[in-house]
Nucleic acid binder design. Structure first.
Lengths: 395, 395
DNA sequence: CTCTTTTATTGACAGCGTAAATTAATGGCC
DNA sequence: GGCCATTAATTTACGCTGTCAATAAAAGAG
């Protein structure tokens, strides 16, 4: 294990305490009994686990003004005191650093962006350090300390070791980021793949709350996918999982940078859509905004490019649904800016290509800004604050 | 819960006891210390859990003749006494019932097949009853009783309720098979999807032993897939999962009975291969044996049909590997009879289409007869004998 | 004021882990 | 051969954590 600097720690590191706390955290104020039911524990265990957490101020009791049962002893609700502590989440892209300061409930208090001038690990680390310093100063104004930092970036990331094995956008290889950052910032640091981080945020606070099996599909420059199976985020035996972007949907389709043809990403990734528009319309669209404008003006070639993208995504989602049978698929990512252009195709293709009751899977969209990814990073930090040993077997 | 007739039960239904027992069961004779390590428990817990199991005769101690450590106290090996009890596994196809009598170690002692004349649930149930009666008589000859029955069939099966939601080959809907069979046979009965049952057998006794993430892909009349993620067989939120057969690999490909085009099954299923051979060669091949003979004689059209099938399967496996990063993929099923005809295409397509380190996944074949599927059914029965509550969190 | 209903708490007990003690086998040395 | 040090497996004793069942608490209904 990497060294984590000394800091305030969670009062009770027992499985039940972590379990209860994360249940209350993600499922809002709950009565003890309800929390017990949802966490799969006994009521007695909740009473015992809650006591030290109340004492430490992480949980607070609320009088249940409304929704009091008509009969019987009124329940007292327990909820997390968000103001009790802060966390910082960072999301790094190839050109930008997005940082958020969140409270213990992972609500964003401050968000800030910084352009990256250079991809060298030391430079990026310095920029991260500066951003964290600023956000910590803001936290000081709120009066409570920052207890952890989470960093999310795309690529092959070993979360348990805190090492970036390979990051294509930053061109890093085997950078022990958690260790380096922990030394500079004097904070416990978690590092994870960005899509997995977003998936954790959705699992706790978003459209995946309370579900044991769901998928998050992100649409944008790349096409990514986070999977939750049996209540746990899938990391894959080799650290690679959820590569929906490189699922082949059309073996005769356009070539992909991965060496194949017709990958979802080679049809529905931002670059692929731009290329397609240039090919069919001859218009030299420079970026996604122009492409969107063109399509919204009704230019046939542009609309067709988005329609194709929608079909590819729908097929990719159907593949995921056929293989895992998730309860829900959440579509997110910057690419949703053009969602009206391919929503219909996604839905139609999915419905057609999903087999049997896999089609009952609930597909919904969540337009989330990059700040939400950074929030996911903060969520991983909160997660490892609560349970230092990785996998929370939530249900 | 459905009623299970009274029968001999497992001595200690504690988590640790089940854990240890299944570890010893699947990983052969082990020293207590080694068993503890593999099950993730303490040595003390093993000693305590083993005692009542030894007393009840389910486990026996063996002198460790060889492999004795050079120095120090020699270990005593613990193993399951296969002869202590028997189980019966049944696999139902549309035309046949395959039954096996296994010992407690899930080794097949007797195998028997019966043709099905009718698909009516009562008729099939009667045939099952007769087959079970015969196998029980054989078990009586061995001197120990049959403690459970497992039934495996293709389709949408709810294992926890023991209900067959939909079986295409038998044309059943919502048949409470476990309850019906338990009444007739006076045995605890488990019912599960056939591919999942085979996956359990592989997880415990086959090429998946000791792995936390792997996939079983079955090739034959249909193309199926069993997934093990985080050490547990994936059942899917709606009871459907592993539908690799209906993953699209070529949207312009031949139509599939599911309503789409270019599903893996529509290219690599037995019927699809036959149809393709008829189309390209004009030869009216009647069954798989003839198709194989034709291909082995070097007829180009037949060889091409198998090559196409191999590509489709390879692409399907690559999709599974890209999405959840298994340590291993096990290819099995009757279709392996023609494996030499498409092995190369499977391997090539997989290697090409697998993204990044997903390609490190170990793909291997296991030619297993239908009896092995029935054995899988017996394995599910043994599983629920050991842990009445479903999911064993093995590692 | 008592009964009913629902939630929260308490105390006895069981399962499992840790750590120290015990047991078993072996080689070296006299 | 007898004795002792060495090594490792196993067991015993004890503490922590969670469950179960009984009990207290807080209302409203009659």
């Amino acid at each position: 294990m990497r060294p984590t600097p000394p800091a305030e720690t969670f009062p009770a590191h027992t499985p039940a305490a972590s379990q209860i706390f994360s249940t209350v955290l993600s499922q809002g104020p709950l009565t003890r009994l309800e929390a017990a039911r949802r966490a799969g524990l006994s009521a007695a265990a909740v009473t015992k686990a809650v006591r030290p957490l109340l004492a430490a101020g992480y949980l607070v009791e609320t009088a249940d003004d409304e929704a009091r049962p008509a009969l019987g002893r009124p329940a007292s609700l327990v909820r997390v005191d968000g103001g009790r502590a802060h966390f910082i989440g960072l999301k790094a892209t190839g050109s930008e650093l997005i940082g958020v300061l969140t409270d213990l409930c992972c609500r964003i208090r401050v968000a800030r962006r910084v352009a990256l001038t250079d991809r060298q690990d030391t430079t990026v680390l310095a920029a991260m350090g500066e951003l964290v310093r600023q956000l910590r100063a803001e936290a000081a104004d709120f009066g409570t300390p920052v207890l952890g930092l989470g960093v999310a970036l795309s690529g092959d990331v070993d979360r348990t070791e805190g090492v970036v094995r390979y990051s294509p956008f930053l061109d890093w290889r085997d950078v022990p980021l958690a260790e380096l950052a922990a030394k500079v910032m004097e904070l416990p640091v978690t590092v994870d793949n960005d899509v997995r981080a977003l998936t954790v945020a959705e699992q706790w606070f978003g459209a995946g709350a309370g579900l044991s099996d769901f998928a998050v599909v992100t649409v944008g420059a790349g096409i990514g996918c986070g999977l939750v199976v049996h209540g746990r985020v899938v990391a894959g035996a080799h650290g690679v999982a959820g590569e929906i972007g490189h699922v082949t949907v059309d073996p005769t389709g356009p070539p992909c940078h991965c060496g194949n043809r017709g990958c979802v990403e080679a049809i529905a990734g931002d670059a692929a859509i731009l290329r397609r528009i240039r090919e069919t319309t001859g218009v030299e669209v420079a970026d996604t905004a122009e492409a969107l404008a063109l399509a919204h003006r009704g230019v046939a070639g542009a609309r067709e490019a988005y329609a194709r993208a929608g079909e590819a995504i729908g097929r990719g989602i159907a593949t995921v649904a056929n293989l895992f049978g998730p309860q829900r698929v959440i579509i997110s990512g910057e690419g949703l800016a053009g969602y009206d252009l391919f929503a219909e195709q996604i839905r139609d293709t999915f419905t057609r290509a999903a087999f049997g009751s896999a089609a009952h899977c609930d597909v919904r969209t969540r337009p989330l800004p990059f700040e939400e990814w950074a929030r996911g990073a903060a969520a991983t930090a909160i997660q490892s604050f609560i349970t230092p040993d990785d996998p929370p077997p939530s249900r």
